[in-house]
């Protein structure tokens, strides 16, 4: 098994997955029963408006042709136009995607290292006071809806104390400190849930490695504790930890949608929720494709990293 061919194979699989995802997105948004245009327009449907929408959606053509046309435009980088206000989606989304990336990146930069460290601490001392503390508090955090955490944070820091803004308006901010002030609450709210999941999974992944025979052998060989963890356990724990991180991106994406709406944050998560409310099909399709493809690509990256970390793949027989 050549490592390069394995990676190429995974890449192919990734492309296939994105294709399947695109089919699902397309079919999902178009499973409207009855007349699509009437359903979208509701009671305000006039014959002209209906005709207009039918033309814009190309509903007179068969579904598979519409799918191929949509996919073709997508591949050329054309996301289409909004059904609600006719805006060009490339512009609308282009304007906001940077904000969402910023929010996600800052959250990841804080949550990932912190949760891995917490997970490591808990796993090296199972059943100790610190482990119980970490385990119970993370358990409580994953049990509480993320919007509840946001509500509590807002009522404390924005309403009661008035230290931080409750609305994340990025239009009039300037300079690093201002950005930090605006992002503080959304990032904290988002980090809590993601961190809780990640720390718990890291704990069990590392605990699994620490109770394995090679680690017992290292202890019996007289290897000092720190060296066991760094040299003997870590290489075996990398793949599971990477997988844990990738898995939790799903929570991050869910969190982004909720938190952006909650804080009126100008990102594509909120844009998408607005699109769902107004039944703006092209907008929802575009946003869904962006979120899903990112998720698939990041998972793919995790998969490939853990493959490379596997000695059986790196050093074939």
């Amino acid at each position: 098994m050549n490592i390069l061919s394995v990676i190429v194979q995974r890449l192919g699989l990734g492309i296939l997955t994105v294709l399947i995802v695109s089919i699902l997105v397309f079919v999902g948004t178009e499973i409207l029963p009855g007349d699509v245009a009437y359903a979208i327009l509701g009671q305000g449907a006039t014959p002209e408006l209906v005709a207009n929408i039918q033309e814009r959606l190309g509903l007179d053509e068969p579904a598979h042709l519409r799918y191929l046309a949509w996919l073709g435009e997508l591949l050329r980088g054309d996301l289409g136009t909004s059904l609600a206000n006719g805006a060009i989606l490339n512009d609308v989304i282009g304007e906001r995607i940077g904000n969402t990336v910023l929010l996600a990146a800052v959250t990841a930069a804080i949550a990932v290292p912190l949760s891995v460290v917490l997970g490591l601490i808990a796993s090296t001392r199972p059943d100790s006071a610190i482990d119980r503390l970490i385990s119970t508090s993370t358990l409580a955090l994953i049990s509480v809806p993320d919007f509840l955490i946001a509500v509590l944070l807002v009522s404390l820091f924005a309403v009661q104390l008035g230290w931080l803004p409750a609305i994340a308006n990025l239009n009039r901010v300037d300079g690093f400190l201002e950005y930090a002030r605006v992002l503080a609450l959304p990032v904290t709210a988002l980090s809590f849930t993601v961190m809780a999941h990640m720390a718990r999974m890291t704990r069990s992944a590392v605990l699994n490695v620490l109770t394995s025979s090679p680690i017992e052998m290292a202890i019996l060989k007289g290897v000092p504790k720190w060296r066991i963890i760094l040299v003997h356990a870590l290489p075996n724990a990398i793949a599971p930890i990477i997988n844990v991180i990738a898995l939790n991106l799903a929570y991050l994406i869910t969190g982004i949608v909720v938190i952006e709406s909650m804080f009126n944050f100008p990102g594509i998560g909120r844009l998408m929720v607005e699109g769902v409310t107004t039944r703006d099909i092209p907008l929802v399709q575009a946003a869904a494709m962006i979120f899903c493809s990112t998720y698939v690509v990041l998972n793919l990256a995790a998969d490939i990293i853990s493959l490379i970390a596997n000695p059986r793949v790196r050093h074939p027989k």
């Binding site: 025979s213 090679p214 052998m217 019996l220 060989k221 075996n236 059986r312």
Partner: peptide, 16 residues
């Protein structure tokens, strides 16, 4: 004092 385990296959670290 040194130790030889029952199953070397399980006790050697596959990553090193």
């Amino acid at each position: 004092i040194s130790y030889v385990a029952q199953s070397a296959a399980a006790s050697f670290n596959s990553a090193l």
